[in-house]
């Protein structure tokens, strides 16, 4: 009997663990319940759909990426700015960029009967069945940053990833004077964002017959992997004129490899996305230029679009934000 009792005791500890998890939530998410001090005894989070407030789930691709944390910060801010109207809950798959886990999150939103889902899909095609389920449950779906190839999407807010690749490549090739050997470091193999940007890059190459693509390899959106890929390229090719990495984490990794090889003067580096580290690299002259897609605005506008749609207003179903190629001059 004693064994069973101890087993139950351990079990209760586990239950308590779960509660620790839960109580942690309430401080972490931006439920307006926190400001609503009078709500005594009311269980927070999910139940808040009573009244006028909209429950909006904001799902990103990873909580382990500075880029998406910028987006969630903006989403959180939006939740605070309109605390009397919306309730924003932030979610992300545990395994970064895992489409299967992201589908699980959408299913959970359906269970929680949220009013709208704002999502940056890990894969444009893979997310479709989940979005169709959400549509069936009458939930408004807005995509931000990355499109969905199907389902009933109220609006898309973001850039065209194809254009990202195209405009960055064009800027790089112009800088090189239309002549030279370039390297492209892609994101995760099979990831649609990475593929679309790479397609844009290759399309731009057609306008520049003097450009040769030496190598195009994936580095999993990861700094250390990009560094290894770049080191190997530096070793293999004696004549490299330009490098484009499809996000800044990889960009900063590639720069380290180039600097370690002492070839920063002969290679023009470009990347995508802007933050303090990128500005520092621009200032140091390690980076020639980067692309800015303003992910914070994407998140904020996407949530507001969902709110407008819920209020019954007509919203534009494609809200393409401009991409700007920024160089050091833009920050001086």
């Amino acid at each position: 009997m004693f064994k069973k009792i101890t087993a139950i005791a351990v079990g209760l500890t586990m239950g308590a663990m779960a509660l620790v998890g839960c109580s942690n939530v309430d401080t972490a998410t931006t439920t307006a319940a926190a400001t609503d001090a009078g709500a005594s005894g009311e269980t927070a989070s999910a139940q808040a759909s009573t009244g006028e407030k909209y429950d909006i789930a904001f799902i990103v691709k990873s909580m382990q990426s500075a880029f998406f944390i910028n987006m969630t910060d903006a989403a959180e801010k939006c939740g605070q700015d309109y605390a009397d109207k919306i309730n924003v809950e932030i979610m992300a798959p545990q395994t970064p960029f895992n489409i299967e886990e992201q589908i699980q999150l959408v299913e959970q939103c359906i269970t929680n009967q949220v009013d709208a889902i704002v999502i940056a899909p890990c894969d444009s095609e893979g997310i479709v069945p989940a979005i169709e389920k959400a549509n069936d449950a009458g939930i408004v779906v807005v995509t931000a940053n990355t499109k969905s190839n199907g389902g009933d999407i109220t609006a898309y807010v973001g850039v065209e990833n194809y254009d990202v690749g195209y405009s960055l490549a064009t800027a790089l090739f112009d800088k090189l004077g239309g002549e030279g050997n370039v390297i492209l470091i892609e994101g995760k193999a099979g990831n649609s964002t990475s593929e679309e940007r790479a397609e844009g890059f290759k399309a731009a190459m057609e306008n520049y017959p003097g450009i040769t693509l030496l190598s195009s390899q994936p580095a999993d959106w990861d700094r250390a992997s990009a560094m290894t890929v770049m080191e190997n390229c530096l070793q293999t090719y004696d004549d490299i004129d330009g490098v484009l990495t499809l996000t800044k984490d990889m960009g900063l990794g590639a720069i380290e490899a180039i600097k370690a090889a002492g070839r920063e003067d002969e290679i023009v580096s470009m990347t995508f996305d802007v933050d303090d580290d990128v500005i520092a690299a621009l200032e140091a002259g390690d980076l020639y230029a980067s692309g800015n897609q303003n992910e914070q605005s994407q998140a904020y506008i996407a949530i507001m679009t969902a709110v407008f749609a819920l209020d019954g207003y007509e919203v534009d179903d494609e809200q393409i934000l401009p991409i700007s190629v920024v160089t050091l001059e833009d920050f001086q």
Partner: peptide, 12 residues
């Protein structure tokens, strides 16, 4: 020291 950054993504 190699990648010049301390990053929670290190070595997944």
């Amino acid at each position: 020291a190699r990648i010049n950054a301390a990053d929670a993504n290190l070595g997944t």
